[in-house]
């Protein structure tokens, strides 16, 4: 089930701050909806566990998250592949680009994702909606994380 999604979001922080947060596992962990753990295992590699519900299928995905094409502070490619046990698998990547805006930073993203197994069989009609909702949630969490009032994270 290849699914693609593009978007951009304005963040109330400068590019360097945004870039730093984008590379901070603690921040990502808080922002990724359903994320239960996210641990750095090597440079540019993390191990993640996230709980996701798509339609009638609820699954805990475990997998590796890799950062590539790293170009500080302009952007990177984040990709991951998770095994959801009997629910199937999810994999995908996002190209994330940062540009300076009038106020703060513009983050644009270009996502491609695939799911397979039960999650594709029973949840295929919901997958686009779920992905958009998760992206929205991530960026609203992320915007909060980078906002000056939240620098304590």
């Amino acid at each position: 089930m290849a699914m693609t999604m593009k978007g951009e979001v304005e963040l109330p922080a400068d590019r360097e701050t945004v870039w730093a947060k984008l590379n901070d596992p603690e921040v990502l962990k808080v922002c990724i909806p359903g994320c239960q753990s996210l641990e750095k295992t090597a440079d540019n590699e993390m191990q993640a566990v996230a709980k996701v519900k798509v339609g009638p299928v609820s699954a805990t995905f475990k997998g590796k998250v890799t950062l590539s094409d790293i170009d500080p502070p302009n952007g990177y490619r984040i990709s991951g592949e998770g095994q959801g046990g009997i629910a199937g698998f999810a994999k995908g990547g996002a190209r994330v680009a940062l540009t300076s805006a009038d106020v703060g930073t513009k983050l644009s993203y270009d996502v491609e994702a695939q799911v397979g197994g039960k999650i594709a069989q029973l949840g295929s009609r919901m997958i686009d909606g779920v992905a958009k909702k998760m992206a929205d949630q991530f960026f609203s969490n992320f915007a909060e994380a980078v906002s000056p009032s939240a620098t304590a994270i």
Partner: peptide, 14 residues
């Protein structure tokens, strides 16, 4: 089946 071989009509819903 979609191009990846996922059966997208795998329930009485679809």
């Amino acid at each position: 089946y979609n191009e990846d071989g996922q059966l997208i009509t795998a329930s009485f819903m679809d």
